[in-house]
């Protein structure tokens, strides 16, 4: 199958764009210093006067495989996409499936989860898109 020349040109253009994007990805701006995969959850916390919650993937994946949370407990692959609230947590859903005083320390340890800097938006720290977004001019933007 012969290819039309403009298709090739478009493809070359896209590849060039891709490499530019990758190049930017590899040079991380220096203000993202938190652990890869740390998730800030802040749909409601700021508005309710609590610090945003921070979920550390590295810490939990040493103890559980992804399947436990993302298949069995039903966490969607989307930061802030699960609409977690304290009521759900004390009823044993989401974080509350483990942070119940049986598997892990329970909910009265507010500050261990609510440890984010106030006004930090919901994000996956160090994600590709976050790294790409910063040079475009919105430091620490929503993922």
């Amino acid at each position: 199958m012969k290819q039309v020349p403009w298709v090739t040109r478009v493809r070359r253009g896209l590849t060039a764009l891709l490499f530019a994007v990758v190049a930017i990805t590899l040079w991380t701006p220096s203000d993202s210093r938190a652990e890869y995969g740390d998730i800030v959850i802040n749909n409601y916390a700021d508005a309710a006067g609590m610090r945003p919650a921070i979920f550390p993937h590295w810490f939990h994946r040493i103890r559980f495989r992804c399947k436990v949370c993302h298949a069995d407990l039903g966490f969607q692959f989307k930061a802030g996409g699960n609409e977690i609230t304290m009521l759900k947590i004390i009823d044993g859903q989401f974080c509350g499936a483990c942070h119940n005083g049986e598997i892990a320390w329970s909910v009265e340890n507010c500050d261990l989860c609510h440890s984010g800097k106030p006004n930090t938006p919901t994000q996956v720290h160090e994600s590709t898109i976050q790294k790409l977004a910063v040079p475009v001019g919105q430091g620490g933007s929503k993922k």
Partner: peptide, 9 residues
């Protein structure tokens, strides 16, 4: 940079 150093947690 994302955790609040002022928090005891």
């Amino acid at each position: 940079g994302i955790h609040d150093p002022a928090s005891e947690g």
